[in-house]
Design a protein around this nucleic acid. Structure first.
Lengths: 186, 186
DNA sequence: GACCTAAGTAAACGACCGTTTACAAGGTGA
DNA sequence: TCACCTTGTAAACGGTCGTTTACTTAGGTC
């Protein structure tokens, strides 16, 4: 029996997409260095050699995965009046979309991946954010945003010390919301 | 000719200390994963095998290096009235002492080293800080300290985006000082 | 001064990694 | 049906890493 929509057993586009999808998940979860090509391709259900064939190597796959994750709209579409509350909600995973920032930050261990992440972070996050904020000290405010975000994700995902299981402690969440709100407020 | 103080060519304690010293520098600069045993021992001027002999392996060396770095007094000796200004000065390297936090944070890439760093960070930084701050929301304030510190170091050392060459931009520094001061203020 | 233990070295080991190569199998058009 | 190109696989390659093993050498002791 055949399916209504033919799904060829061999479809390069589909395979490529499967690798990219698995890469996004695993890179986001484990960073660049600790994520293995064999692990990514295992999740995608294909042979490790296809990473080199379709993407030109692990680093280029990372770049492609990062680029794809950043194609989802970021934060500059949020209303400024509620920026603090909404960005924290997004970071906390309250809405469905996953933030691409953990993947960006997870690159910081490897020097080559760091260079890639740095470039994309600047072009696709930092500069748009700076433009969106506007004003004399837009660069300082954007830097503040980066620091608080970096601190939050690193603390939550890499070095969880306190009772950070599940959701954010309410007073901590309130502080985060005020921090982010203050960045966009005049 | 002989020196006034005899320095034996072979001195286990001295060698051990040399390895530990080199390890502190290189782990702080490159994190756990990217620092190699061969690189550390080369700086110490000894053979790589001595890491296993004297410390029991790379991970245990990391733990020892971290422990030694944390034996320098930390931040709970600063006067609370000037905590913000002084802690930023220390982070910025204005005073001579180097903060051990970069080494702690540099472990976050490797899962085993992360576990070690997490434990030491909790026992030697987080809990003392919490006690020192005091009050109902000491844990929340300590978490805020961790986040801002993590954000600062990661941004400065791992993903420098803006004009962060050399010293901190004055307005950014002012913001940091106020953040840290607010953590200890009632 | 011979001896013996501690200190240090050189080299190899085994494991893992990303990547490449050689080959098998599926799909398509003549 | 046969040829041909694409897709996918299996296995080996080359390199790096932390570690272990076998050996050499310095220095104190009887």
């Amino acid at each position: 029996m055949t399916a209504t929509f033919d799904v060829p057993a061999r479809d390069a586009d589909r395979t490529r997409a499967a690798i990219l999808d698995a890469a996004q998940q695993i890179f986001a979860a484990k960073g660049f260095a600790e994520a293995g090509v064999r692990e990514i391709t295992a999740r995608a259900g294909v042979n490790p050699s296809l990473v080199s064939r379709y993407f030109g190597g692990k680093l280029r796959l990372f770049e492609a995965a990062l680029d794809a994750a950043l194609h989802t709209r970021l934060m500059t579409d949020l209303p400024k009046e509620e920026f603090g509350r909404l960005i924290v909600a997004r970071f906390a995973g309250d809405d469905q979309r996953v933030s691409p920032l953990p993947m960006l930050f997870g690159a910081s261990a490897d020097s080559e991946a760091r260079a890639v992440a740095q470039r994309l972070l600047r072009e696709r996050v930092f500069e748009p954010l700076k433009q969106w904020i506007g004003g004399d000290d837009a660069d300082v405010r954007a830097a503040r945003f980066m620091m608080v975000s970096l601190g939050f994700f690193t603390y939550r995902d890499q070095l969880p010390l306190a009772e950070f299981s599940g959701r954010i402690e309410p007073r901590l969440r309130q502080w985060l919301e005020r921090e982010f709100q203050a960045i966009v407020d005049a």
